[in-house]
């Protein structure tokens, strides 16, 4: 078959991502695809996703900015500030653009708990910006736990009444990339797919299947310990972390094979349980992150 990738060509995550990057670059050179404008909005959150993205490799973030997209607005990365920055944001709305949003939308007091700038002398709330920009975007990427389902921002008692982006844009299609933070490959890979081939195939919760299709548990290197009922009793034990509260069995994402920080390691590889950060409902539904009383045996309680 033509175009099939066979060994000895490397099939590692890095190699696949690099092939994607070089294909995008080639297609751009041949003018088969065009750079698209990207607006990156940070709402109610911790900027953790943009920091995670700066850790991207193949494509790295700088490459993404310079070659794949035309970054119109990102309050963390752009040089302009204040009203000048907001002017750029408003002007970018005139053309076609891809919208990426990290952070939740704060609803309390009509959105006043999250102000992203001043527009015409009035505060521009995250709620206003999400609705306004979301309605006109050609594609929407909800990046990270807060944007996809409220995440940490919406954790109890949720003083800002934060919700996920879909709640304020109920009729819009969006690709959801849960994770706290998002892995740079999940975001940059999805974006590259969007530019090269259009929207990737997603599951019924709008997550791209290419990253979110397997349970952590099903690809966990410690799975044989689970199957034999051999469980870790404390952090640092090299066996199955299930009794300590590992959320790998309910979390659907590719951490075991992808790994973090330049594909070097991941929580279970470092003997701490998965806390289910890429599962909807994180963090409340994934609590407690660690329990010792399930492994401690007290007689005559």
């Amino acid at each position: 078959m033509e175009g099939q990738i066979l060994p000895p060509e490397s099939l590692t995550n890095e190699a696949i991502a690099e092939r994607l990057t070089s294909t995008a670059l080639e297609s751009l050179k041949k003018r088969m695809i065009k750079k698209k404008p990207l607006i990156y909005l940070e709402l109610n959150g911790c900027s953790g996703n943009i920091i995670s993205l700066l850790n991207g490799q193949n494509p790295d973030f700088e490459y993404m900015l310079n070659s794949m997209v035309d970054l119109k607005y990102s309050n963390s990365l752009m040089a302009a500030e204040g009203e000048q920055a907001i002017d750029k944001l408003i002007n970018a709305m005139d053309g076609e653009y891809i919208l990426a949003v990290e952070g939740a939308v704060a609803l309390k007091n009509n959105g006043l708990y999250n102000i992203i700038g001043n527009w015409d002398g009035k505060p521009l709330t995250g709620l206003q910006a999400a609705k306004m920009l979301g309605e006109r975007a050609s594609h929407i990427l909800a990046v990270g736990a807060c944007a996809t389902h409220g995440g940490v921002s919406a954790a109890k008692p949720n003083p800002s009444q934060s919700v996920g982006l879909q709640r304020v844009l109920p009729d819009k299609n969006m690709i959801k990339l849960p994770g706290c933070p998002v892995h740079p490959d999940w975001f940059l890979g999805t974006l590259a797919h969007l530019l090269l081939y259009g929207e990737p195939e997603t599951d019924n919760l709008d997550r791209p299947l290419m990253f979110y299709s397997t349970l952590i548990h099903d690809r966990c290197p410690r799975r044989p310990f689970f199957d034999r009922g051999i469980f870790a009793e404390k952090l640092g034990d090299k066996t199955c972390l299930f009794k300590l509260g590992c959320r790998g069995p309910v979390t659907r994402v590719d951490c075991p094979t992808r790994q973090w920080n330049g594909h070097v390691n991941w929580p279970i590889g470092d003997n701490t349980p998965c806390i289910g950060c890429a599962q909807f409902g994180f963090p409340d539904a994934m609590a407690p992150f660690i329990s010792y009383d399930t492994t401690r045996v007290v007689k005559n309680e």
Partner: peptide
């Protein structure tokens, strides 16, 4: 497996 640490989605 869905009841790690005897808890399940809260």
């Amino acid at each position: 497996r869905a009841w790690a640490a005897a808890t399940h989605f809260g």
